[in-house]
Design a protein around this nucleic acid. Structure first.
Lengths: 255, 255
DNA sequence: CCAACTTTGTGCAAGCGTTCACAAGCGGTA
DNA sequence: TACCGCTTGTGAACGCTTGCACAAAGTTGG
C-alpha cells in the first residue's frame, strides 16, 4: 500500500515538461498551507486504496468525493504539489501517490519513540498503521522500572532516564508523548535534548518548546468538548425553534 | 451550517447591559467560530488547573501564556462567551470556568459509547479523562462474540448488532468509533440510526453522514504525516541554506 | 475626588484559506 | 488537421481569523 519509500530518488518520474529541480520542490513545500498538508495526507490514503483496487486514473471530482472535500479545493491542494494531472482525463493514481509522498517527506523513514506505556502507549506500540506507513516504532519508554526490558509490540521498553541516549542512538525523529499530564513537559524536554524536532502530544497540557520544534496535539477531552458544544448548540436551536426556555425569555421564534 | 431558519423575525432583543437571557446564550453560541471553541476547551482546562491551585483571579496575559496563545486572541475568544472580566484586574477564575462550561454545554452530561474494543478501545474505555469531565462511558461494543458481556473498565461489552437499541436506551449522545477502517462506515450508520448526532472517529476513513450529524476525526497517520512533512521541509531548508540543488534528499538536521 | 495606572473589550486592517469561474490543454473523432 | 468535449490549473473575489492599537472601565493611592 503505502510502502514506496526508498523509491523516488533514483526513479524521478518527473519527466518532460516540468523541470522540477529540488529547489522547486523546496520552494513549493514551504508555501503549502498547513490545512492543505493535512488534506494531502487524506488524499494519499484514498489514492492508496484506489491503487489497491486497480484504479489507475482518477478525476478531481471522484477523488474529492472520496476524500470529502469539494473538487476546487482538491485541485488547488494538488496544485501545491505540482501539475501532474492530464486535462480532459484526470490524474494518474501512481504518479500522484509518489508525488504526494515526496512532498510529505515519506520517501524517508521516520523512526518513532513512544513515551508512556499505559493503556494508550500500548495501543500505539501495537498500532499497525505506523510501521506500514513508514513510521517504524524504534523505541518505547516508561518510568516504571518493572516495565523496563519487557517487550511491547516486539520492542523492549526502556526507562525514561535513557530517552536522550537511546533516541540519539536510534535516530528517532518523531516523539510521541502518551504519559500522564504531570510528566509530559519533562519528557518533552528530554526528547528535545535528544534532538527530536517533531512531537505528537497526547497529554492534555500545553507543551513549551523551542521554536524549531514542531508539536502536534491530540486532545481527546478537547474533541469531546467540541462535540458537546455542538450537541448543546443543536439542543438550543431546537428549543428555540419549537418551545422556548420557560419564562425567562419571552421570545418566540417562528419557524 | 445554513441553519438560520427562525431568526429574521423579531427575534432576540440583544439587551442593554448584561441580562444574559437563554436567547442571548443561544445567539452567541451560534456565532462562535469553530477554532475559538477548540481554544475555549483549552482555556477551560488551564483554568481548572489554576482553580485547583487556589488561584482566584487571572489576567488575559497570564492565561494566554499558559494556554499558548497571544492575549488579544484570548480576549477575543472570551468575548464570544461574554464580558465577564474586570478591567484593571482580570478574570475571576471560577466565574470564567462556569461560563465557559455553559457555552460548551458541559452543564449537561453526555453519555459516550465506544465501538471497537481493540487496543485503542480498551485505552478509551479506561481513560479517566472522560468521566471526570462529564463524559461518562455508558456503552461499549465489539463484533467479537467472545467479548460480549466481558466488562472493560467496569462496563460490559455489548455486541455491535445491539448498537441501535442500547444507544437509544442509554441516551448516548456521543459515539466513538475505534474499529478497523472496514467496519467504520457500517458502525457509523448504526450509531446515526440510534440517534447519535456526534461522532468521534479514530478510524482512518472519511465517514459519510447526514448533514445534521457532527463528525470529528482523529487520524494518527495523518498527524504523523504532517510531522513528517515538517521534518522534510526543515531538512530541505537546511540543505537549501548551505548547498543548493544537487542532493535529491539532503538530510542534514540542525539544532 | 482626582489622577495615574492597569487591563479588558473591540473596531479595523492585514493575512490566509476557500470558493468561483473560466481559459488553457489534452484526447478522441472525423 | 481541425474540431469537440472534458478536466485541469489558477487568477480573482470572498469570507473567516488573527493581530494591532486604543478607548472604556475599573483599581489604587494621595
Amino acid at each position: 500500500m503505502a510502502d514506496r519509500r526508498g523509491e523516488g530518488d533514483g526513479v524521478v518520474t518527473t519527466p518532460k515538461t516540468t523541470a522540477d529541480t529540488p529547489a522547486d520542490v523546496r520552494e513549493r513545500a514551504r508555501a503549502i498551507p498547513e490545512a492543505a498538508v493535512a488534506r494531502l495526507a487524506v488524499y494519499l490514503r484514498v489514492l492508496s486504496g484506489m491503487a489497491e483496487q486497480g484504479v489507475t486514473t482518477i478525476s478531481s471530482e471522484e477523488l474529492a468525493g472520496a476524500a470529502g472535500v469539494n473538487s476546487a479545493k482538491l485541485r488547488k491542494d494538488l496544485s501545491y504539489v505540482g501539475s501532474y494531472g492530464t486535462r480532459g482525463v484526470g490524474y494518474d493514481v501512481e504518479v500522484l501517490v509518489s508525488h504526494i509522498e515526496r512532498i510529505l517527506g515519506l520517501t524517508r523513514k521516520h523512526s518513532v519513540a513512544v513515551v508512556g506505556i499505559g493503556n494508550l502507549g500500548h495501543a500505539l506500540a501495537n498500532y499497525g498503521g505506523f510501521p506500514s506507513r513508514g513510521f517504524p516504532v524504534a523505541a518505547l519508554f516508561d518510568i516504571d522500572p518493572d516495565l523496563t526490558g519487557v517487550p511491547v509490540g516486539g520492542i523492549p521498553v526502556d526507562h525514561i532516564d535513557d530517552i536522550t541516549s537511546v533516541c540519539s542512538a536510534r535516530e528517532v525523529s518523531i516523539g510521541v508523548i502518551a504519559t500522564p499530564p504531570q510528566a509530559a513537559q519533562a519528557v518533552c524536554d528530554r526528547l528535545v535534548s535528544a534532538g527530536v524536532q517533531c512531537i505528537l502530544n497526547f497529554a492534555p497540557v500545553v507543551l513549551q518548546v523551542p521554536d524549531y520544534v514542531e508539536v502536534r496535539k491530540v486532545d481527546l477531552a478537547v474533541e469531546m468538548q467540541i462535540l458537546s458544544f455542538h450537541v448543546a448548540r443543536r439542543a438550543d436551536e431546537a428549543a428555540g425553534d419549537v418551545v422556548n426556555g420557560v419564562g425567562v425569555d419571552g421570545v418566540v421564534i417562528r419557524p
